[in-house]
Amino acid sequence: MTASPFEIEIPRGRVIEVQRDDTRVRRGTGLLRGMAVIWKHWKESFKLNRSYSQIHGTFTIEYPEERPRIPEAYRNMPILLYDDETGHELCTSCFQCERICPPQVIHMTQAKDPATGKPVPAVAEFIIEYDACMSCGFCAEVCPFDAIKMDHEFELSTDDHLRLTVHKEQLLRPISYYAHIAPTMWAEVREGALKKLQGNIRRRPDVIGLAPQLTEKIAARRAELAAQAAQAAQAAAATPAPPAAPAAAAPAPAEGRKLTPEEKAAKLAAIRAANAAKKQQSGDGS
């Protein structure tokens, strides 16, 4: 993108009616005036013209050495977004974009919780066929989570046809990238998107939903989960009484928000342990 701005000012709403009187005999002076106009154009064409409001100057942008400034709303080929800080993808595999895509080039599968087998608001595999995508932008318009957006990259020519079937790893871009290319458009939807993302993060177990290229974040999260699990096991071993289990569930719903899958699993384990203990007690008592 060039640093110099390239604006267009179009005065709208003015109609000029030109009365042509053919009866004046110009004797060739009209031709000379026309030639004078073109001489001025030729003379001024050695300067650059960086605004469409001027009529003199060369406005050729010599691609590929110079690039035109691409407007924010330019759309060419969709990309998926992931959050920079948490590393989570915004996509929840709701299938809205797949439904609305006119040439039907979007394909995805929803992630499932490995423990319960239930669907999780994250996407396991996401494929877009770039060679048939017509860049209409419907997918970006309809996405409720602002997860899929239109990129500005148009230099996609290749002689390897299979490379144009793009998978999730190649589709992912950090939010900072999108905020850089379309700041105004991202600023409008940022708060809502991040709020929804927080909700979704809580419902994603394990490392599901983390962008696959952020290997360190994945490793860190795994370590964190392992530490939590070790803590929970220690707490469960240290305090045999089920009423002590609520201590592990202490980070749990004091405010009434939704539980993360780990918390849910812990809660379920606690309830089962309590039931088992009750049965034992009743079994012992009777």
Partner: peptide, 10 residues
């Protein structure tokens, strides 16, 4: 080249 310059291009 010359006609291009007269037409504001290169």
């Amino acid at each position: 080249r010359v006609i291009a310059r007269m037409q504001d291009r290169v």
